[in-house]
C-alpha cells in the first residue's frame, strides 16, 4: 500500500515535471498540469497489466536510474551515428550486414523493448523483440556483439530493477542462409 502510494507519487512527479517543461516553465498553468499529471499517474491503477508483466513499473526510480546512465547511452549513440554516417559517405559502402538472434535474459515486459531501442542506437546494430529473443541486424558481420549486448542488457535490468534469468530459448540460430529471396 505504501509502496503503491510512493509509485503513484513518483509517476505524478515525473509527469508534472514534463508538463512544466513543455509549458516553457510557466507557472500559471501548473494547476491544470497537476490535474492532468494526477490522472495520468492514476492510469496504471485502472488499466489491467498485460500478462507476463509481474508488477507495475516504478516510474520515478526508473527515470532517475535511466538519467544516471544517460551519458553512457548518449556517448554510444554519438559513436553509432558517426559510424553509420561514415559508412554512408564512403564511396564503396562498407557494409557486410547479417542477422542473428540474441537470447534474452530479461523478463518480458517493457524492459526488452527498452533494450531493443537502445541497441538500435548503438553503433552498427538494430534490434527487434521477438518473443524471448532479440533479433539483431548488424552492419558488420565480422564483429562480435555478444559482450556489448550482455552489458547493455545488464544495464537495462538495473534501470528497471529486474533480475536477469537464464535464457528461455535454445541456442541461437542464424536464420539467413538460403531460401527464396524477396526483393529488398
Amino acid at each position: 500500500m505504501i509502496l503503491q502510494l510512493a509509485r503513484l507519487l513518483g509517476r505524478f512527479a515525473v509527469f508534472w515535471g514534463v508538463w512544466w517543461l513543455l509549458t516553457d516553465g510557466r507557472t500559471d498553468g501548473l494547476v491544470f498540469g497537476a490535474a492532468f499529471a494526477a490522472v495520468a499517474a492514476a492510469m496504471p491503477l485502472v488499466i489491467v497489466e498485460p500478462r507476463g508483466t509481474d508488477r507495475p513499473l516504478a516510474l520515478l526510480p526508473t527515470v532517475l536510474r535511466g538519467l544516471l546512465l544517460l551519458p553512457f547511452f548518449l556517448w554510444q549513440s554519438l559513436y553509432g551515428g558517426i559510424d553509420v554516417a561514415a559508412r554512408a559517405f564512403k564511396p564503396r559502402l562498407p557494409l557486410t550486414p547479417t542477422l542473428f538472434d540474441y537470447r534474452l535474459r530479461l523478463p518480458p515486459g517493457p524492459a526488452p523493448v527498452m533494450l531493443a531501442s537502445l541497441v538500435s542506437l548503438m553503433p552498427g546494430t538494430l534490434a527487434i523483440v521477438s518473443g524471448a529473443r532479440l533479433r539483431v541486424h548488424v552492419l558488420d558481420a565480422g564483429r562480435d556483439y555478444q559482450d556489448e549486448l550482455e552489458l547493455l542488457e545488464a544495464q537495462v535490468a538495473w534501470i528497471f530493477g529486474v533480475a536477469l534469468q537464464a535464457p528461455r530459448t535454445p541456442a541461437p540460430t542464424r536464420w539467413v542462409s538460403s531460401g527464396p529471396e524477396t526483393d529488398a
Binding site: L95, P97, L99
Partner: peptide, 8 residues
C-alpha cells in the same frame, strides 16, 4: 513479410 536482408 519475409523481406530478406541484403547480404553483400
Amino acid at each position: 513479410r519475409r523481406i530478406r536482408p541484403w547480404q553483400g
